[in-house]
Amino acid sequence: MDGVSYQRFPKVKIREMKDDYLKFELRETDASIANALRRVMIAEVPTIAIDLVEIEGNSSVLNDEFIAHRLGLIPLTSERAMGMRFSRDCDACDGDGQCEYCSVEFHLHVRCDTDQTLDVTSYDLRSSDPSVVPVDVAQHSESTGYDASEQRGIIIVKLRRGQELRLRAIARKGIGKDHAKWSPAATVTFMYEPEIHINEDLMETLTLDEKRDWIESSPTKVFGLDPNTHQVVVVDPEAYTYDDEVIKKAEAMGKPGLVEIYAKEDSFIFTVESTGAIKASQLVVNAIEVLKQKLDVVRPSEETEEADDQFGELGAHMRGG
């Protein structure tokens, strides 16, 4: 159309990147984009999860439905999910969700023949696709301080002597909006970046004890005291929870305007934690991609636009064109 554009050019800075954790800054855009990204990460980025369970034999203490539900909640590695089809619009299998394009089959067969309780875990699930397997908690455990030898996957049920569990399960692609088991996000949050200005002149009218008292009034450690100069300094602006406590304290001490705190309305700090189904960084990339696809389908169809054009001309005639 015409050359005008009101586009923005957001900036990104990653602070910390691990497989299942990501912290980054998003700048020069507004809260609607930040919130859309957050919402999409939680509810609309696809993953793979067990959706259909056929129990062939179950003599455990848990009933069939209970086990089926537990299986559904096990996160599966889902790098493939973006390229997969939803079984409802899969042509190859008429949507019954049993073909390689839209599903992965799992088998589980465990029987306890000892006097010791046997744990049935996610490791006992045998996948038909080596790229879609239960998330391996032990693999990430070195960094989190767990002893890898203690990690035995995710427990599904416990069996005693003579009990057996045998089943077939179909995992499908889905989104968190359908059921939370498909959500790749453990937590996704963002906060406005705070901008803290201390009125130094007013601050110097405080005694050392008053300064300490004022610093203590903040429930989180935002401010500190310089041990040499006895000046109040900002230790960690992002610890501020917009609780206004320090502002109220200043007023109560008869020093209004001691500190001014603004939320920068175009700067956000994101924290993303993944369930392990996909990497946290991939989660963000996929969220942007999903949001783009969503925007693309809400473009008006050709016929809608043509109808408007004709109407527009008609309107122009009526107005005396």
């Binding site: 554009s5 957001p10 990147m17 984009i33 963000v284 949001l291």
Partner: peptide, 25 residues
Amino acid sequence: NQAINDLDRELNHLKNAFEEEMMRI
């Protein structure tokens, strides 16, 4: 239409910026 186009371009820009930053990190 303009709004959708602008948002689409903003997201393209964001995706590139994010991927570049991922590479850098």
